[in-house]
Design a protein around this nucleic acid. Structure first.
Lengths: 205, 205
DNA sequence: AGAAACAATGAATGCTAATTCACATTGTAC
DNA sequence: GTACAATGTGAATTAGCATTCATTGTTTCT
């Protein structure tokens, strides 16, 4: 009789899948998408290359799953931090602080999402753009709220949101690539001040 | 007797090389580095694939030359605009305005430099990082000058420079990828205001 | 015009890496 | 413990390109 759907078997399957994902994250963080081979991932996960295909249909499915996982981790983290605040400025600050803290903690994640960006035309890149757009959307919503409250000047909040996200992105990328600024969390303070002034925060609080 | 070094021949050689470069720029703007084949470039340049190798030693040499050309165009453009100003804020503004105007005019250039970024480990990427670092360095110099003049707060100018460049980069990338903001030059005004406030420009001028 | 130098061609070569597959090993049920 | 289901294996297959090369076409020089 078939024994496929039993708990024990399923769990084992899922646990091995997770191991492969973990190994893959490490490899992708050090090499670009094109630059990492299934063979290398398989070696790191201590399986044969063929075994990989029992768990994932192909390389694209793997990277898509990794990026989606990271997307969820990131959004969960941001939403969790934001929940503590109601003020627009505070929410913006909480969002970026959540990002930075997560990236410091999970450097591989940051490397994959921000540095190992391959060219267009694959699932990986499309997902990455989704993540970025979601972050920009969230930022814009906060800015629109602040604008409605007359707490920031009447300017294009979309452009402002891009500027906000872009400034963080650049600092994080430089930190990943060149190790500068050394202390990302310290840089965060400067960066936050820069952006709050940039938005035109009056002296409310 | 050899006829290699005569003017006519050399000129023809150089002119064909330029044609190939032009075709290559167009192809690279639409596909990533890995995603474009020499065959496609050759077709666009109306030559056989083998002919390509009479003009360039390999694919890497081609992209390196393209990126270097663009680097020079960009720096020339920036330096030219900056020459009209002595004030730090004005110089910063001139730099970014020069960038934006060039990218609007030469959209393919922007696409190659900003969107078709392949993963690491090739000459293309290294050059791109050089360009970015050069821009950041220029920005930091202006900021240091302003700081010495006590015209901006005493904060980490490196982080500020990253934020400045990053905000522009993000807006330009979004414009290239999604076509938003529609009018990049209009967005420039918002962006510049954002960044001048961000730097902490007092009300000098 | 004829010979030598050079340029152009595109099919052949070679390499790399994803994916498959025939076979081997392990796990489950009875 | 045996039969069958499922997993694991890694060598073989395949496909896509970059690069080369033998051949053909073109230009220059005398």
């Amino acid at each position: 009789m078939a024994y496929r759907q039993t708990n024990k078997v399923m769990e084992k399957f899922q646990s091995k899948k997770k191991e492969i994902l973990k190994a893959a994250r490490e490899v992708f963080a050090e090499n670009s998408y094109q630059g990492t081979s299934i063979k290398t991932i398989a070696q790191k996960a201590k399986i044969a290359t063929g075994t990989f295909y029992l768990y994932f249909t192909n390389k694209d499915a793997l990277i898509t799953m990794i990026v989606e996982e990271m997307f969820h981790e990131l959004l969960k983290c941001i939403k969790h931090e934001r929940a503590n605040f109601t003020d627009g400025f505070d929410k913006l600050q909480a969002s970026m602080e959540a990002c930075i803290k997560l990236f410091v903690k999970e450097k591989n994640m940051a490397k994959i999402l921000l540095v190992q960006v391959p060219g267009v035309n694959n699932a990986f890149n499309a997902k990455l753009i989704d993540i970025e757009n979601e972050l920009i959307k969230l930022t814009k919503e906060d800015l629109d709220e602040l604008k409605k409250q007359d707490r920031i000047p009447d300017e294009d909040t979309f452009v402002t949101a891009l500027a906000f996200v872009g400034s963080f992105r650049q600092v994080i990328i430089n930190w990943l690539r060149e190790g500068k600024p050394e202390d990302l969390e310290a840089a965060f303070a400067t960066l936050m001040k820069y952006n709050l002034r940039g938005m035109g925060k009056g002296d409310g609080s």
